[in-house]
């Protein structure tokens, strides 16, 4: 016959089991990853079609006057690939490049003579027979606001 301590212990452990599995069950179908370590798992889940351009990476350039331009890579900002795509590229694509945006300020600090930021896509698409090279398209050119100017 289990003693009282064991009953209490088993009850607490059962509560822990239910909490872990219950939370993961809810999180797994909740479209959020804010409940770490209980997450949903949408890795590689989006569907793609033939002819779709590959989003291997975006190319970011600081455009200066007189035809000068500089490529900006994640390592220039001491960032990993994902943070660069998520924070920097998305800021430019959504045209949020005022200097109050700390991420963008770091980009502009690298090249104070920049008058615009330009983003290009990856020069390839997927086909039934594999990768097909394509020209890289300019997908955004966003003028850099002058110091003190607001958007």
């Amino acid at each position: 016959m289990p003693d009282a301590v064991q009953i209490i212990r088993r009850t607490l452990l059962s509560g822990f089991i239910l909490m872990v599995l219950g939370t993961q069950t809810v999180a797994g179908f909740s479209h959020t990853d804010r409940w770490f370590p209980f997450l949903w798992y949408p890795m590689y889940a989006a569907h793609h079609e033939e002819g779709e351009r590959l989003d291997v990476r975006h190319f970011l350039y600081a455009v200066a006057g007189e035809g000068r331009e500089y490529e900006i890579r994640p390592e220039d900002l001491q960032m990993g690939f994902w943070r660069f795509e998520g924070a920097v590229i998305n800021s430019v694509l959504s045209r949020k490049i005022d200097r109050s945006n700390e991420v963008i300020r770091r980009v502009l600090d690298l090249h104070p003579d920049a008058i615009a930021l330009r983003v290009q896509d990856y020069p390839a698409a997927i086909t039934r027979n594999g990768i097909k090279p394509l020209p890289s398209n300019v997908i955004a050119v966003v003028p850099v606001p002058q110091q003190g100017a607001s958007f």
Binding site: Y44, A46, H47, H48, E49, E52, L54, A124, I126, G130
Partner: peptide, 10 residues
């Protein structure tokens, strides 16, 4: 098929 081809390529 194209989805996984896409991810393999990317």
């Amino acid at each position: 098929g194209y989805s996984l081809q896409f991810y393999l390529a990317v």
